[in-house]
């Protein structure tokens, strides 16, 4: 029964995240209206990432989404400052700079996703190798102090017997 419940809970959790995101977008849409939604077209890479990112932690969605939103945010602020009209929204969307900034920011996210993991992997490996060396030194020290018997599972009486006692 517990087994049955677990996948169900997991599915709920997965579906819940998407619902929250959609509700947020919907929340943005409600107060700011259609012109803001037009500007939010710039979040298309995020939407794509939302659909394609299968990673449990949603690292890709987060990286692309945050930067994509950071690229969209100046234009949304600008739209709000100019009365939030459909005309101004369309004029913003008509500018190539707008698209370049919004999509470029998302692209930066992808670039970070491309570059950082290998670097992090290398750093982790260096750390692991260092730790491994330390551990090997530790075992060597233990063997030097206690002899090869420290590595065995034999009983204390067997150890003493092997030493001629």
């Amino acid at each position: 029964m517990a087994k049955d419940k677990k996948p169900e809970g997991k599915a709920k959790k997965k579906g819940g995240g998407k619902t929250v995101l959609l509700m947020t977008l919907f929340g943005c849409f409600v107060p700011f209206g259609l012109p803001t939604l037009v500007v939010c077209l710039g979040l298309t890479p995020t939407l794509v990432a939302l659909l394609t990112d299968t990673d449990e932690r949603r690292s890709e969605l987060a990286a692309v989404g945050y930067l994509n939103f950071a690229g969209v945010l100046p234009f949304m602020v600008e739209l709000w400052q100019h009365g939030q009209t459909m005309e101004f929204a369309l004029s913003i969307m008509g500018q190539s700079t707008t698209w370049a900034v919004m999509l470029g920011a998302a692209g930066l996210g992808h670039l970070i996703l491309y570059l950082v993991p290998p670097i992090v992997g290398s750093v982790v490996r260096i750390n692991q190798e260092s730790r491994l060396r330390t551990l090997k030194e530790g075992t060597a020290q233990l063997e030097a102090i206690w002899g090869p018997d420290v590595a065995t599972e034999s009983s204390l009486s067997e150890v003493l017997h092997n030493r001629g006692l």
Partner: peptide, 30 residues
Amino acid sequence: QIAREIGKPVAASIACFIAIVFMAVALGRA
């Protein structure tokens, strides 16, 4: 696996940090 399990969250964190900086600049400017 290391890259995926450790690198991607790190990348997400870096992206998040840059995004926050960008958003702060944009909001400040506004």
